[in-house]
Structure formats: C-alpha cells, structure tokens
Design a protein around this nucleic acid. Structure first.
Length: 419
RNA sequence: GGAGGGUUGGCCGAGCGGACGAAGGCAGCGGUCUUGAAAACCGCCGGGCGCUUCGCGCGUCCCGUGGGUUCGAAUCCCACACCCUCCGCCA
C-alpha cells in the first residue's frame, strides 16, 4: 500500500509518479476523497465517544439517587456512537479496498515503458557456440534419465515434472551451492511454511491483485505460496524492530506453486513454466535509507551465483509498465537459452520500499519520534528448474552429455552429467 | 480425532462491571551518590489512528481475534485462532 499521507501532502508528485504506471488522475482524486472521508468519520466518532465516555464516568461518580436520571440521559448517546461507528466502518472499508489496488510508486531511476522495453544494464559470461544444432533441455534431460514429463502428466497433468536420478541430485547441488553463496553474504537459510493464511498473502501484496495465480486448499483456509517471499516477508508481521537488528537477511528454500492462469499455450514445452518448482529466494528487511544499496547488493549476489555457474546472461532494468504491484524497481537476470535462441528470465529482484512493510506493519523503533516502516526487498537466488535449463543447454556437448561448471562439482560429485 | 487448561505492556505477574492503558517486580534508559563501578534512591520506560499554534500537547482505540450485553467491559456472553497437558493416530 502506498502512503495515504503522501497522496494528501504532495498530490501532484504522487500523481506524476503513478501516471508512469498508468494510474490516472481521476482515480487519485477519488482516493483523496476517500481519505478525506475516512478522516472525517474518525474525528466524528472520536467526538461521540468522548462525550459518551464523560457521561459514563459521571455515573460512576454519582450517588445512588442521582444515577437513574444520568443513566437515562446517557442512553441517548448510544445511538450517536453507533451511527458514527457505522459511518467510520463504511468509510474505512471503501478506503481500504481502493488503496489496496494502487501499485507502488515507481523508483525515479526505473525506465519508462512496457514489457519488453527493459534496459539491458550489462551482460556477463561467454555466449556458447555450438558446431551443430544445440539440443534443448527436454531432449538433454530426458535422454539423461533426469526428467520424465509424460508420467508426470499422467499423475498430475500438464506443467508438472518428475526430476529423477541425476536431475534430482542436480537440484540438491544447485540449491546447496546457492544457499552457500547467499550465506557468505549474510543471508540466513530458512525453510518456511508453504501454506499460508490470507493475511500473509494480503500483506505481501499478492492479494487482492494476483488471486487468479494462487492455488488454495479446499477444506482449510490456506493459500499455497507462489514464492517463499510470502512467508519470509510475513516473519516480522506486526513487529517493531530495534534498528540495531537491521538488516535482517534470509534465504528461503521452498517449493513454489503457480496456477499460470492465462498462460495457456505459453512455454508449454519442458520445465520452464510449471505449476510446481523449487526456488532459493533472498529476502531483506532494511532501514529505508539503505534499500537502494541493498537492491544492488542482492543483484550482485544473483550475478555471482550465475557467473559462478558459468552461465551467459544479461541484466535487465525492468520498465515501470512491467512491474508487479509492490515493486518500485526490478532487475531481472535473463540467461541465454540455446534451445530457444533467446534470453529468458531466470531471476528477478525487487525493491518494494515500504509498500509491503505498510501492510505487514513491520517497523523500526525511533527514539523520540514516530516509528519508521522498514523497506523490504526480495530476489531470486536460484530458481531450480530455470537454472537447470540454462545450465544443461549452455554446457551441453555434442554427445548429449553436460560439463559441470567447476563451482558445482564439489556439490554434485561429478564433472560430467549424462556421460 | 477426544478431554481438559490457558492467552494482560520487552519479560514475569496482579486485576474478575465504574477514575484501568492497566498494580507490583525484572530488564532497559536518564539522574543523584561514588575516584570509578556496584548497591541504594529518584525519574522515565507500549502501539495504532485522528487533531495539532508540530511544542511539550489533546482526543480516541487496543488486555489473542471478531461479534454481543451494558450508561460503562481486561472483567459478563458467543464464535474463532493460537499455546500447553493427557489419550488416540502419525513422518
């Protein structure tokens, strides 16, 4: 959620910032009216309650003879408080619903434009050259006995996979490698709950906007997480942190579940886009002054992980029109996939500034002043399936075997896969 | 799944219809004393929202959460969540 006070105090700057994301001024005028209405109803309710409270306290002090008359008089006040309460409630509900749908203010440095208009900041790694036609990950992994899509379709349907044999071991190696790199940079490994309550989804901004992307349980009120960002962000829900504790840095490892509604026909081959995948996710809670630096820091960890795997990729500064609701700025790493002859997203890191923290109520204590909302950031350390695709496609050899990058050899125990 | 017990401020813990946002203790912070420290003593010591001459201030809400009863609820009633104990089941 954006800061309603900012909209009130500096409507022009707020409108200009949100206009970059396609929010029009009429919608903002409506928000300001809702904010004004909310404050009026609160003031009215406070007045009514103060009056009633005085009357009740007077009864407590009164003698037995005086009481009946005073009680009768005080009874009149009940209705006024009840009316004011209903008005306040209605105004708060309308305010809440409208503000929950407003996206975060974009970072001034985030580029303009829509999906595809991202600015390539840099590339790293060497783009592999092949003598013949390179195989794609499905061919490589299936031939190597590492992937079984057909049987997964039988058991669970499309967009599911069995990773087995060297495929399963490759997952463990990649995960442990990524967690070790993250750990060297101070991110504490976490295995979080993958079923969460609505409140956690709402607090992280996935509800109400991304409801159609989420799986939910039938008999219990749980959502399956689409990323461990959700339970990691929720860890400090409703907490006031000591500023000395910051930054708090985590690396969550979990399966991720996505319905991929609306993606019919898109990326149907292989394990690029599946309903269930595993991911190591970086998450930081930082002082508001430190979030820009933290964003660069997380991006650098991601780059270190992929460069360490000797994967050629490029870093893209995502345009404002393609940002998720909670992000102010986002960097993706797109790895080169020889099987597609295209760069595809393998990581994404976002600075969500105070947008999530406001709903999560995660603050830091400020002596002699108002407590501050923290800033939160998240980024992919390693999305197993997509990293696996890039790795096997880029490091494949003519015979269908795959050279394991040296950094991963200690984790895997082999120098070659499918050899 | 069955049967009980519980949830109060950073922690412990009193309160069981009327000056209660809440006694008392511990921890923390500031001060007196001291060469310094300890002890002792004094003071401060939750959060949200709104108002504000932004100055300390004022109002209101919060005693797990949400409803209800009442002139008035931490205290009474209902529902839910979570924690603990015992039985059953279980990786």
């Amino acid at each position: 959620m954006i800061d309603p006070r900012l909209l009130r105090d500096d409507p022009d700057a707020t409108a200009a910032a949100l206009a970059r994301r396609g929010v029009d001024r009429a919608a903002l005028k409506e928000l300001r009216d809702l904010e004004e209405r909310r404050r009026q109803t609160i003031a009215e309710l406070d007045r009514a309650r103060a009056e009633q409270s005085d009357a009740s306290k007077a009864i407590g002090r009164a003698s037995a003879e005086e009481r009946p008359a005073l009680i009768e008089a005080a009874q009149q006040l009940k209705g006024r408080v009840a009316d004011a309460e209903r008005a306040r409630e209605a105004a708060a509900t309308a305010h809440e619903a409208a503000f929950a749908r407003v996206p975060n203010l974009p970072h001034p440095d985030a580029p303009d434009g829509q999906e595809g208009d991202g600015e390539v900041l840099r590339t790293f790694g060497r783009r592999p050259a092949f003598d013949g036609e390179p195989r794609d990950h499905v061919e490589l992994l299936e031939a190597g006995g590492a992937l079984d899509l057909e049987r997964a379709a039988k058991v669970s349907g499309s967009r599911f996979a069995y990773l087995k044999a060297e495929g399963a071991l490759l997952e463990f190696a990649l995960v442990r490698y990524a967690i070790d790199v993250a750990g060297r940079h101070g991110h504490v490994p976490v295995i979080p709950p993958v079923l969460v309550r609505e409140e956690a989804m709402y607090g992280t901004g996935f509800l109400p906007t991304d409801e159609q992307q989420l799986f939910r349980t039938r008999d219990d009120d749980f959502y399956l997480i689409g990323t461990s960002e959700v339970p990691l962000a929720g860890m400090h829900l409703d907490e006031v942190l000591n500023p000395a504790e910051l930054p708090l840095r985590y690396a969550g490892y979990s399966p991720c579940f996505r319905r991929e509604a609306g993606a019919h026909g898109k990326d149907t081959r292989g394990i690029l886009r599946v309903h269930q995948f595993e991911k190591v996710e970086l998450f930081s809670f930082v002082h508001p002054d430190a979030s820009d630096a933290e964003h660069e820091r997380i991006l650098a960890i991601e780059e270190e992980i992929f460069a360490g795997l000797e994967i050629h990729a490029r870093i893209v500064d995502i345009p404002v029109g393609d940002l998720g609701a909670s992000a102010a700025r986002k960097y993706d790493i797109e790895a080169w996939l020889p099987g597609q002859q295209a760069y595809r997203e393998v990581t994404s890191c976002s600075n969500t500034t105070d947008y999530q923290a406001r709903r999560l109520r995660t603050r830091i204590r400020v002596d002699g002043g108002d407590n501050l909302l923290v800033h939160t950031l998240n980024g992919t350390a390693l999305a197993v399936q997509r990293a696996m695709i890039a790795l096997v496609e880029q490091h494949q050899r003519a015979d269908g075997s795959v050279v394991v990058p040296p950094a991963l050899v200690p984790y895997l125990g082999h120098e070659v896969l499918f050899g």
